[in-house]
Nucleic acid binder design. Sequence first.
DNA 1: ATTGTTTCTTCACAAATGTGAATGAACTTG
DNA 2: CAAGTTCATTCACATTTGTGAAGAAACAAT
Lengths: 191, 191
Amino acid sequence: MNRLSLHTYLQTELLIDINQEIISQFFSTRELGKGEYFIKTGQVCKHLGFLEKGFVKYYKTDDKGQEVVCDFAKESDWITQYQSFIFQTASPLSIIAIEPSTLQIISFDNLQLLYAQVPSIEKHSRKVIENVFFSALERNNELQVLRAEERYVKFAKENPDIINRVPQYDIASYLGIAPQSLSRIKSNYRG
Amino acid sequence: MNRLSLHTYLQTELLIDINQEIISQFFSTRELGKGEYFIKTGQVCKHLGFLEKGFVKYYKTDDKGQEVVCDFAKESDWITQYQSFIFQTASPLSIIAIEPSTLQIISFDNLQLLYAQVPSIEKHSRKVIENVFFSALERNNELQVLRAEERYVKFAKENPDIINRVPQYDIASYLGIAPQSLSRIKSNYRG
DNA sequence: ATTGTTTCTTCACAAATGTGAATGAACTTG
DNA sequence: CAAGTTCATTCACATTTGTGAAGAAACAAT
C-alpha cells in the first residue's frame, strides 16, 4: 500500500510548513514486522506513533482467553493507547502490526515540546482526539441498534480497503460476530 | 432523590473554594418539568448544565421512527451534547427530563470566562470529558462482547439506582434489547 | 372506587446468531 | 511439488433474541 511520510502529511494534509530537521529532532523511525507489537497489554505506552505505512490492530484478551479486536489503523493514522499514554499507566490492550509497518514515534515529553514549538500541531492533535471520541459514540450506536448483518454491510461499505487487508475473523471479532456467522452473512447477502 | 447544589459539589467533591456570588454570576438556574427538553434534535446546544436534582435521558430517533436511548444522567452529572455545544452545530439528539429536574446552566462564552477566572474548573472539565470518552470505549466493548442478558446484569449491578427510576423499556432500548426480551431475561435470571 | 392509560409480563412462534465438526481453499515452508 | 498450516465455507443443530398478541399489573385522573 501507499506510503505517506509524516513530513508530506503535515505539509499537504494539515498545511503545516515544518522542515524535516524539526521532525527528525522530535520523532524517530520505528519499523514493525508482521506480528510485532507497538505495545503489549500491561505495558505503559511510551509513544505516540504516526503510521506512515502498514496496518495495525488493537485487541485485548477477554475473561475466557478469547482475543477481541477493538480497532484497526492504517496509513496516515495516529496510533497510541490514550489512557496509557496520557496517564502513563498499564495499557489494557495490545497493538500489533498485521502488515509490515513504518512508524514515526514521539515520546510524551517530546510531544509537549513540539506543541510548544508548533502550536498548530496541538490544535490538530485535539481534533484527532475529538474525532476518535465521536467515532466511539457512533460505534456505540451501531452496536446498539444494528443487527450483525447490518453492521457488516455498513462496515464493508465504509472500509472497502480494510476488508481486503484483514483476515475475516478479525473483522468478525471487531463487529462482535462469530466468524462462521459472518461467512454465512456474506453468502446470503450476495445471492 | 437527594439534591446536590453546584456550590456544594465544587466545594466538597472538587475542593474548589469558590463563593456563591461567582457561581451566580456565571450560571443561571433552570427548572425542567417531567417531559421537558434540555435540548431537542436539530437545535444548537447553547448551554452546559450541572444537574443538581432530577434525571434526564439522551435519545435520538432512528430511520424507522423508533426512539433509541443513548444515555442517562442524574444528580451531580454534567449534561450537554458535546458536538453541538463545542461547534455550535445542530444536535443529533435530544435530552429530556424524565423526572422534574433542577439545573445550573452556563453558556459557552461564560464558560470560557469562568475557566479564565478559576483554572481548576477547566482542569476538572477536561477530566470529566476524558471520563465520558473512556466510558464510551467501555460501552463499545460491552456491546461488542456481551450477550443481552450479560449486558443487563452488568448494568443492573453498576446502576442499581437507575433501574428503579427509569421505565424498563428505556433501559431495554439503552442496552439494545427488545422490551419483551428484557422482561424474559429478568424472570429467567431470578429463578 | 371506577375508569382509562401506560407499562410490564407471558406466550407461541419466527428469525437471527452461535457452535462444533467436516471440508476445501489458500497460503507457507521445506 | 508435497506436506503442513491457517483460514474460509458449509452444514446441522442449539441457543438467543425478536415479534405480535393477549392479559395482568401499576399508575393516574376523575
